[in-house]
Every structure is written in structure tokens, then in C-alpha cells.
Design a protein around this nucleic acid. Structure first.
Length: 543
DNA sequence: GCCGTTTTCGGCCCGACTGTTTTCAGTCG
């Protein structure tokens, strides 16, 4: 069965092969189309059926045709042809860090080396020694890279929730130890993408060498890969690459804008600047030699006639056009969260747990809590609830902090449980077993959240789509956030497009550096959600 | 191969770092 992910992968393969063939601009065109296809919220087949493939950014006539061919036959002839011309090992060379298309092509065309194994053999045989462009260091570097790539395979991206505590430890260390005034993690981390390939850390510091020292000395650092006067690259023990850049305060906004990306967004920014006779780089916005902006991101965007664009929206999906006409609608943010509607008090919860929960809820000025007080878990077993903790929580329910009781149900197993019997609402826990939601089971006037909707397994996708439709018809909300059982930003965007409201977990009982709340917020923001789109970002009343 | 509120043709972001170079090419982000 065709999938968007597979189509994108095929176009990336085409791009790699064209790279090796020495094409200049086509590879980037295919990659851009692949990125667009990856971020679609609909199936390509659906878009194709409406005849709207050309409206996907980066898809023109030639790629549209290839998409149609893929959808009807599962293959792309053009790719088959390229694969016959380029040996598979040559494309493999491209994926080795430090080896690019030029080197891969030289190995293949000039030296007849058709893959990593042959390259290693050639190095061992001394065949590269004395070849123009290959000095001693370069050869050693290639050998190391090829050998390292053998063990690990393709570079993997880390889930943002895994990178989150690491990023925060780095930021703290730099703030405290390096005399750094401003410290920000830019890149896809700042855009709140689901996964990050590396971390880009920007600092301003009166003492750059001190910043590099502190950075290199972090306990997680496995090796320092390169160090210049403004930039240092290290690799952590878990394989994550982290770049630290020291920038001048008057350029901080420009650098932050530049390194936050995305690539496609920045291309649009630079193109717009060019049209206005300006130049943008990581140091600022320039008219001729004169810097007219750079200290803050707001200045940079303003100099181009744009409203500031939240990082989560910088994906070249129409945000530039929106920012031209005025300020963007304020996205949901931390202060707009007014409560948590999906709290679990597991069997270990005690009076201390309740106190921590209440203290944190009051500190954040939350107005309500929805606590799961009964129900069944994914295995159909009754959920174990700490009764005394629950009682304690319900008794402190006041007008200022209202506590609601929820029943969590697996709707297929227990449709009868959906009849009203005291609780204030239901948390649905759809299991992968049902092909369709229980359309008629929802009693009127009862609040429903669709949570625990696992979509990490691609085979669950059709089920999840049905649940979104269900939510759209029934006015239910869906839970967005990190973890295998919540929806990511692409799903959140899909939900919004169908008029489905979101509910965000807030990590009330979380420990330091917990990613739950910030990541859930980032994903809702990537979906363009304003407070009105989020159930727990406003007043709430169970009916 | 894509794209257009200066373009349907002629562009396509731009600077740091590294290594191998007598002034630059390749890679990366």
C-alpha cells in the first residue's frame, strides 16, 4: 500500500542519486518535495484525487507525474533508471558524514570505487596516497568516517522528549559556568519538531574561550569534533551532535533566526530580503554595508516587513504570507493553560502525592483538574486508583480549583460504561483492536477526551483517522503530546483542520526537565493552535 | 526541477570550518 513516508523516501533516493550524477539543483528540488510530502496531514492519494498535488510546495509538473505513477504502480521508473546507472554502494557513500556528492563521484568515476568496502580496501592498498586533493589527514578522516558508519548505519534522529533534558542540562551549565548572558537552543529543537538530528546552542559571552571550555567539559561529551573561534562541535556519549556558537549581542537575534530555521523558511526569508534590496545572514540584516537589524528576532523580521513568526511555525507552510499582513494570532502558550484534564493517581499515590499535585496546580493558578477515578486499562483490567488520595483530592475541590472525576474506558470492550452514572466525563482509551469507534455510544451532554490513542505503529493509522472523524462528529477532544499514546503535531494539525479541539497533558507531578508540558505545547503550536483550540486553555465546565 | 506583487526564463542562502591549497573546493548546517 502506498504511503506518504515511502513516497518521500523514494524522492530522497532520487535526490541522492542525482547528487552523485553531478546535478546542481535537481537534488534540492526533490528533497524539498520530499519534506513537503512528509509534513502533509493527508494521504497523497487523497490530495491527488482532488487534483491538488501541484499545491504541495515543491511539487511541480514533473514530480506530480511521478507521484501519480507511484500511487498507481508503487514504483517510479525514473528512480529505477537512476539505480541502474549508479551502483548502490556509491549512494551509500553519501550517507557517511563528511563525504559529499563530489567525493563520492570522484571515488566512483575517477577511481572506480563503488562502495564503502572498496574505498577502505583502496586506502589500505595505498591507492589514494598522492592522488590530488587527498592528503594524509583527509585519507585518515575518510577511513574513520567509513569505519564509524559501518557500525552505526544511518544517522538517527532523537525524539525531542529524549533530547529535552540533555538540552536543559547544557543550557544550565553554560548559564552558571560560562558567564553567558544569553543561552538559547535553536534548530529543530526550538521549532518543537518531533525529532532532532542535533542541537544548536547559541550564547553571548564576554569570554568565549571559557564557554568552549565549559562546553567541552560537560560529562556527556564523548569527543570534540571541531573547534574554531566562534564555533565548537562535540558528540555526546549517546551519539547526539551538539554545536555551540558564540555570537555578539548585536547579532544574537539574527543568529537565533538563522539557526532556528527551517531551511525552507530561511530560503524564503533570504529571497524576500533580496527582493527588498537587503541581505540577511547570521549577523544581521544589511542594506549595503550598513546593519539595520540583528539584536532581536523581532527586529530582523520587522526589517523585512514581517511580523515576528513563532519558531514552531517556521516550516514554509504559509507563515511568511501571514506575517506580511500583520501580527499572527497568538498561539497557545504556557500561561494560557488553565488546568489538567487527564490526571492519573496510580496505586502508589498517597497524601504526599496529593499535596504536590495541589501545590503545583495552585502555583500555576490552575482552575480545574480532571482525575481518572475509575475505569479499565488497555488490558481490560480495572484501573487501580489510590482511593484515599482521590477522596482527599475531591474534598478539597473548591470554586477556585475544581476537581472533576473521569471514567476511563475502552469503548469497544465496555460500551455500556458510557452511560452516565456519576462521573463528570469520559476518557476514551481506543485499542488498536477496533476498526471503528462506537458512534452511537456517546451519551449527550458528557465531555469526552480521546486519549491513549497510540499511532506510533503505522498499522494503527487508519484506526486513528477514524477516531479523529469520530471526535469531529461528537465534539470530543483529542490528547496531543509526547509518548507513544498521544498524537504528534501532524496529527494535531489534522485534528484542527477538522475542527477537533485538543487537550494537552501538563505534567503536574513531573520532576525537573520533564518534557511533557513544553513538548505538548510545542506540538499544539506547530499545529497552529490558539487557546480557543485547546480545551484546557480556557474555562472548563463538565456538563 | 521549481518558482514568480519586478520574472514563464534565469535564478536557486550563505558563512564557518577543514584540508590542501599558493587562492580554493568540499561539506555542513
Amino acid at each position: 500500500m502506498p504511503s506518504n513516508a515511502e513516497a518521500a523516501e523514494l524522492f530522497r533516493s532520487i535526490a541522492d542519486l542525482l547528487d552523485v550524477m553531478g546535478e546542481r539543483f535537481k537534488p534540492e528540488a526533490y528533497r524539498r518535495a520530499a519534506r513537503s510530502i512528509d509534513s502533509l496531514t493527508e494521504d497523497l492519494a487523497t490530495v491527488a484525487a482532488r487534483g491538488e498535488l501541484r499545491s504541495v510546495p515543491g511539487v511541480g509538473g514533473a514530480i506530480e507525474e511521478k507521484v501519480r505513477e507511484y500511487l498507481s504502480t508503487g514504483r517510479i521508473h525514473y528512480l529505477d533508471r537512476l539505480q541502474k546507472e549508479v551502483p548502490p554502494g556509491v549512494a551509500e557513500l553519501l550517507r557517511i558524514p563528511g563525504l559529499g556528492p563530489k567525493t563520492a563521484r570522484r571515488f566512483w568515476v575517477d577511481l572506480g570505487l563503488e562502495g564503502p568496502t572498496e574505498v577502505l580496501a583502496a586506502i589500505d592498498a595505498g591507492r589514494l596516497t598522492g592522488v590530488k586533493g587527498f592528503g594524509e589527514k583527509k585519507i585518515a578522516q575518510i577511513r574513520n568516517a567509513v569505519e564509524a558508519a559501518r557500525g552505526t548505519g544511518a544517522a538517527t534522529r532523537l525524539p525531542i522528549e529524549t533530547a529535552f533534558p540533555i538540552a536543559h542540562r547544557i543550557v544550565r551549565a553554560l548559564r552558571e559556568g560560562a558567564d553567558a548572558d544569553r543561552v538559547e537552543v535553536a534548530g529543530s529543537f526550538r521549532r518543537g519538531r518531533e525529532t532532532v538530528g542535533d542541537l544548536d546552542v547559541l550564547v553571548t559571552s564576554r569570554d568565549p574561550s571559557r564557554a568552549f571550555e565549559v562546553f567541552s567539559a560537560l560529562p556527556e561529551v564523548r569527543e570534540v569534533r571541531l573547534r574554531g573561534s566562534t564555533k565548537e562541535t562535540v558528540v555526546l556519549t549517546n551519539g547526539l551532535q551538539v554545536d555551540l556558537r558564540v555570537v555578539e549581542p548585536e547579532s544574537f537575534g539574527a543568529a537565533l533566526q538563522y539557526f532556528t530555521g527551517s531551511k525552507d523558511h530561511n530560503v524564503l526569508v533570504r529571497t524576500l530580503a533580496k527582493e527588498a534590496g537587503l541581505r540577511v545572514n547570521e549577523y544581521g540584516v544589511y542594506r549595503g554595508e550598513e546593519r539595520i537589524a540583528g539584536a532581536t528576532e523581532e527586529d530582523v523580521y520587522a526589517a523585512l516587513g514581517l511580523a515576528w513568526i513563532p519558531p514552531e511555525l517556521r516550516e514554509a507552510r504559509g507563515e511568511m504570507e501571514a506575517a506580511r499582513t500583520g501580527p499572527l494570532p497568538p498561539l497557545v502558550d504556557e500561561p494560557s493553560l488553565r488546568g489538567d484534564l487527564h490526571v492519573h493517581l496510580d496505586s502508589g499515590a498517597d497524601a504526599g502525592t496529593v499535596e504536590r499535585l495541589l501545590t503545583e496546580a495552585r502555583r500555576r493558578r490552575y482552575a480545574y483538574l480532571g482525575v481518572v477515578a475509575a475505569g479499565v486499562d488497555a488490558g481490560g483490567q480495572p484501573i487501580r486508583v489510590a482511593e484515599s488520595a482521590l477522596e482527599r483530592l475531591v474534598t478539597v475541590s473548591t470554586a477556585k480549583l475544581r476537581v472533576y472525576r473521569w471514567t476511563e474506558v475502552d469503548p469497544a470492550e465496555d460500551a455500556a460504561a458510557l452511560l452516565p452514572s456519576g462521573p463528570d466525563g469520559f476518557v476514551l482509551r481506543p485499542s488498536a483492536r477496533h476498526r471503528a469507534p462506537p458512534v452511537e455510544a456517546r451519551p449527550p451532554g458528557i465531555v469526552i477526551l480521546v486519549a491513549h490513542l497510540g499511532v506510533s505503529d503505522p498499522s494503527a493509522t487508519p484506526v486513528a483517522r477514524e477516531w479523529l472523524h469520530y471526535a469531529a462528529r461528537r465534539g470530543a477532544a483529542v490528547e496531543v503530546g509526547p509518548g507513544p499514546e498521544r498524537l504528534d503535531s501532524t496529527w494535531a494539525r489534522s485534528a484542527r483542520e477538522q475542527g477537533v479541539r485538543l487537550v494537552l497533558p501538563t505534567g503536574l507531578l513531573a520532576i525537573q526537565d520533564d518534557p511533557t508540558r513544553p513538548v505538548a505545547l510545542a506540538w499544539a503550536r506547530r499545529a497552529g493552535a490558539i487557546p480557543n483550540d485547546v480545551v484546557n486553555a480556557g474555562p472548563f465546565r463538565a456538563s
